[in-house]
């Protein structure tokens, strides 16, 4: 599984990344986390609000700092969009 965190590196993105790492650890899932900071690349996913989360090239969340529980729910149920 490849998880991309989209965002310029502002505090919100960093918090989201941290929550994602915790969620992965809690679930015992191995995944690669890639931070995407380039605006050109971010815009190609169609999001207008950062931070965004992309799991295996599918946008699953944007404009929200998900907490650990919410990331865990996403990881258990891929394809579900949370705003």
């Amino acid at each position: 599984m490849i998880i991309k965190i989209l965002g310029s590196g502002c505090p919100n993105c960093l918090r989201l990344e941290e929550n994602t790492r915790t969620a992965l650890k809690n679930l015992g899932i191995e995944a690669e986390i890639i931070k995407v900071k380039d605006y050109n690349e971010i815009s190609q996913y169609g999001i207008m609000r950062t931070p965004g989360v992309v799991i295996d090239e599918k946008v699953v969340s944007y404009g929200k700092v998900l907490n650990v529980q919410e990331v865990m729910a996403l990881l258990n149920k891929p394809g579900h969009i949370r705003l």
Partner: peptide, 16 residues
Amino acid sequence: PFCSCSSIPLFIGFTK
């Protein structure tokens, strides 16, 4: 609503 760090993705999204 948008935070200042979203202003660029928003600019791109509107323009595209």
